[in-house]
Amino acid sequence: MVEQMRKMSVPIYIAAFVISVLIFAVGVYVGNTMDAVVKDSISSDLQSVYAKAQSSELLILLEDSPAFCPVYAEEAGRMDDETNGLGTRIAYAEDVRGISDPELKKQYFMLEAQAYLISKKVKEQCNDGSDLILYFYSNQNCASCAEQGHVLDTIRSSRNDTKVYSFDGDLGSSIVTALKNQYGVTSYPAIVVNGQVYNRFVNGEELAGILG
Rank of each mutant, 00 (worst) to 15 (best):
G98L: 03
Y13W: 13
I60H: 11
V49H: 01
L22M: 12
R97I: 11
V30G: 03
I12R: 01
A53M: 15
V38P: 05
D64Y: 02
Y116M: 03
M5N: 06
L117M: 10
D161C: 00
K105E: 14
Q196I: 05
M8H: 09
G77Q: 02
S20E: 03
A143W: 04
L211Q: 03
P189M: 06
L117R: 15
V71G: 05
L62G: 08
Q125V: 11
R97G: 01
N127H: 08
K106F: 00
G169L: 09
L207K: 07
V96L: 10
R156A: 15
K120W: 10
L46S: 08
L61M: 12
E124V: 09
G184R: 01
C142M: 09
A15P: 02
Y188S: 01
A53I: 08
A91L: 11
P102T: 04
L117F: 06
K106Y: 01
Y13R: 01
R6G: 13
E205P: 05
T177C: 01
S130Y: 13
N160R: 09
V164R: 04
I191H: 02
S9Y: 02
I133T: 04
A115D: 10
I42H: 02
T154E: 14
N139C: 05
S119F: 05
T154D: 15
S119V: 03
A115Y: 07
D40W: 03
Y137K: 10
N139V: 09
A91H: 03
S41T: 14
T186C: 00
P11C: 02
L59T: 14
L22Y: 05
E147I: 10
E74W: 09
L46T: 08
F136G: 03
S157M: 10
Q47H: 10
Y50W: 07
R78Y: 13
V164C: 09
S48N: 07
Y188A: 00
A113W: 12
F109N: 09
A76F: 08
K180C: 01
G31Q: 11
P11I: 01
S174C: 07
S173W: 01
I23W: 01
Y183K: 00
V2R: 11
T162L: 15
P11F: 04
Y92R: 07
S44C: 02
V38H: 06
A15Y: 01
A113D: 15
D45G: 04
S157E: 13
S41N: 09
R159P: 01
E3R: 09
R156H: 12
